[in-house]
Nucleic acid binder design. Structure first.
Lengths: 102, 102
DNA sequence: CTGGAATATGCCTGAAATGGCATATTAATA
DNA sequence: TATTAATATGCCATTTCAGGCATATTCCAG
């Protein structure tokens, strides 16, 4: 199973997740929207499903996929300390501006 | 050149970035800390350098690498809408708790 | 200017992942 | 039950990448 970091490495999978943010959709709809053939779409969905980033619901022959973004928290958590770096630099900039005002 | 998303796919590179959060370090120090051989470390640093995630400073024969986390903003930005999903669920949970208090 | 330390680079190999295509599976419908 | 729609899976070819090793490069010290 791929880690969520590896999953995000592929632009196609990122687009797929972005598309699913609009709401749950069938495999066919997704394939059409993202202009990839059906088997490729099924494979992308499978990798995301195995990692728990998407979930499925069955509707007759259709599989309706929906976003399950909880798994992305791992990425967000990893990123957190770096966010502190940016804010640190922002603070530094603010201090600079303040000193200029004096 | 790799995208920042692809760069984060490799656990070794993530560890390297994490290590650099402690402060700037030479190639040799980094290799020792992360228990990888020197050529491998130089390669990892090169890929990160090409993407602008780290920067170098020359000190005699040594190359001192430091973190340049600005490039990670792209990941953070992409992640932002998903963060909204989590908060949404948090809000829902809070509403549930409030209704329980009534 | 010679030797050694620190780092980078080139080459090769093995592993893994993507894309395309054919085909299997599952479910509805006539 | 035969047919068709929707989806999944298996296989093959191609590519890409990390790892390991040898070696080139750069710089200081003596």
């Amino acid at each position: 199973m791929m880690t969520c970091f590896e999953l995000l490495a592929d632009p196609g999978r990122r687009s797929l997740l972005d598309e699913l943010r609009k709401g749950e959709q069938s495999v066919g709809t997704l394939a059409k929207q993202l202009k990839v053939n059906q088997p490729a779409m099924s494979k992308q969905l499978k990798t995301l499903r195995e990692a728990g980033l998407v979930a499925v619901r069955i509707d007759a022959q259709r599989r309706i996929y929906r976003l399950n973004p909880e798994g992305l928290r791992e990425v967000d958590d990893w990123l957190a300390p770096y966010r502190a770096f940016w804010e640190q630099r922002l603070d530094a900039m603010e201090r600079t501006l303040e000193s200029l005002e004096d």
